[in-house]
Design a protein around this nucleic acid. Structure first.
Lengths: 143, 143
DNA sequence: CAAACTGTTTAGACTCAATCCAAACCTGGA
DNA sequence: TCCAGGTTTGGATTGAGTCTAAACAGTTTG
């Protein structure tokens, strides 16, 4: 799986007795197009520009459903919860100064593999892992 | 640096124009003795058993000061913020079922080194990294 | 020894994110 | 078109965390 796909969502909706609504469609579209990792509040405002009167409850309902379905994931950095529409195997770089969260492709961290993690821990069952790298982003480094 | 040391705290207190108070001492003692990763609420209740009338503000003040001084760190898992008195280079295993957070020694993940991370990312300045491994803990695996 | 100074604690008010709820509404199938 | 059941709404509610003013404690100064 890679980025959030509208097609995937439409399919899952039908298979789970759920209904596709305009609000849900717009939330999914916004997440698809987002290049960063939006907060629930950013989603709320973006959705309301295209579809006024959308309540926060709807935004949270949809985000939680997508999260539960594994179509998006949650990232917590700097005391703020963000949503990540990229569910492909990847990791994060967090800037200590500006707080920006950047994606790091899994191919870049080939040195650490899931099989290795599984071998390291005896009694636990390892399913996946994620790496958070911290430092200064390109902009803050030069500034 | 490894586990939170009372000695270290006493020293830092003096060097920063801060005062060591009974409340702070008890909070530090509790964190030292904690085997898990307590929440702010757990710290609040534990401290109040030994020193009643300690307010939440004091607990948060102390936790934030310790965090700012790098003596403890914050972990966010399952929608809950926890504090980690172990500041040695280590990583975390999170159980998908019960939510428990276990420490994983850095020596176990030797395959991935900070130098490698630095080489992978071009323009960013890498300072440190942490790995979160997910799966089923020993208890939940057998149950 | 007391006053003054500085940093701390307290309790409660306050903020903000997130959830809950009942009533109105909409979607998809018959 | 009608109906049943899932969904949306907006307001109330919860809960973590912060802020504030007043009381307090430890130190230093006169």
């Amino acid at each position: 799986m890679s980025r959030l796909q509208a097609q995937t969502v439409e399919t899952m909706v039908g298979e789970n007795g759920l209904k596709m609504t305009p609000q849900r469609r717009i939330i999914v579209e916004y997440l698809q197009s987002a290049l960063n990792h939006p907060t629930a509040d950013e989603v709320f405002h973006a959705v309301n520009e295209k579809f006024p009167m959308t309540s926060r409850a709807t935004v949270y309902n949809t985000l939680n459903w997508l999260k539960g379905s594994g179509l998006i994931s949650e990232v917590f950095e700097g005391g703020v919860v963000r949503y990540d529409p990229n569910t492909s195997n990847h990791h994060h770089f967090v800037c200590r100064k500006c707080g920006k969260v950047e994606d790091v492709g899994a191919e870049l961290v080939g040195a650490f593999q899931l099989e290795q993690a599984a071998a390291l821990l005896g009694s636990q069952k390892v399913e996946n892992f994620e790496i958070t790298i911290r430092g200064l982003c390109a902009d803050c480094r030069t500034a």
